[in-house]
Nucleic acid binder design. Structure first.
Lengths: 190, 190
DNA sequence: GACCTTTCTTAAGATATCTTAATTTTTTGA
DNA sequence: TCAAAAAATTAAGATATCTTAAGAAAGGTC
């Protein structure tokens, strides 16, 4: 189980077994049922979660009451609300399990301690954050220049069989289009 | 001149004079004239630039030939192409001075060395990147839910007298709308 | 100061996407 | 297994934004 995490970390840094084990001592294993919340709007996000198995969505609720999905989390992904986690401010998003979920979590407090005790882990998270930023930039530029259809095609091609795991109206919400229009796109597509 | 940078770093971490001075030894002072390029598409971005004075834009050119501005850089801002810098791949953006520009730059090679020699600087850049990510996330969510007019009003309110420093068609490009439509928005606005 | 270039504005028609509302299909839970 | 709830589709009319094209204003240079 820890192997997946080790492999993941080694994509970013060279880490000794010993340091990895030390890091693992700070992690907690946590399971969630579908529809259960890892985080609710209004509370502070005190953890980062590494997804071992399952699927999450991160969304906020507009004034109009509409839910907007801003991120999905899948296997080998860290999920958290960065703003709330880093700045210890109340979150305005929800993080919810969509499938039976298995995670490792680490608290902010632990993580700060880890950064000082195991510098290679701070390096790992620095690089991870850099890559996350790069991905976020790319997707937001792609989002700007591509129309809805291209965004949809991009999504279904980027993560194989991801679309099957999530109801279509959530895909629409993530792509920032209405479910009706997504339906339209799919019709003219096939 | 170094004071601005020191002050900036101290917004993120507690740093000793000594460490700061050590870090400064790796920096190079660099000036650019308006329209001069800090980076051109196709080449690798080997530096991060800290802007002491002036203004930059980062843009790419679409297949259609249209320039799309994805970022402006102003005083007390680090500019670089993160993807190209971190992964040493050819950039697909241009970074250009719009005003006479004064910067400190640091090369990737130096920076890697600094990370190992002065851990507090690695922490600084970790936190900086976290905050950058948070800002990027916020702006991309705002962008999604707000219409053009709201995006324009948000921009003119967020950085005082920024709009005066940049031609309107560049503002339009940054807001991802046509100059004609921005003109329209401004008309109905006042 | 006048001319050439760049930037900004105006307006008309075109298009992508939304809204609303009704209908059909699929999923869920008792 | 069936009824109720949730999700997906369809279609018509509405709206935000774009495209094109032309004219007006502003700025830079000899």
């Amino acid at each position: 189980m820890k192997e997946a995490l080790k492999k993941y970390i080694r994509r970013y840094v060279v880490i000794e077994e010993e340091d990895f084990e030390k890091f693992c001592n700070y992690l907690e294993f946590h399971q969630f049922n579908p529809k259960e919340y890892l985080l609710k709007s209004g509370s502070i996000c005190y953890c980062k979660y590494f997804i071992l198995k399952g699927l999450t969505r991160t969304f906020y609720i507009e004034e109009s009451g509409v839910e907007r999905i801003i991120q999905f989390g899948i296997e080998n992904w860290w999920v958290t609300d960065m703003d709330s986690f880093c700045n210890e401010v109340p979150s305005n998003v929800y993080i919810q399990a969509l499938e039976p979920l298995e995670t490792f979590s680490i608290s902010k407090q632990s993580l700060e301690q880890v950064y000082t005790e195991i510098p290679i882990i701070e390096r790992f998270f620095r690089r991870l954050t850099e890559n996350w930023l790069i991905a976020q930039q790319k997707s937001s530029h792609f989002y700007m220049k591509a129309n809805s259809k291209k965004r949809y095609l991009d999504l279904i091609n980027s993560i194989p069989n991801f679309v099957q795991r999530v109801p279509q109206y959530m895909i629409a919400s993530y792509l920032d289009i209405t479910p009706e229009y997504l339906s339209d796109i799919r019709k003219t597509q096939q």
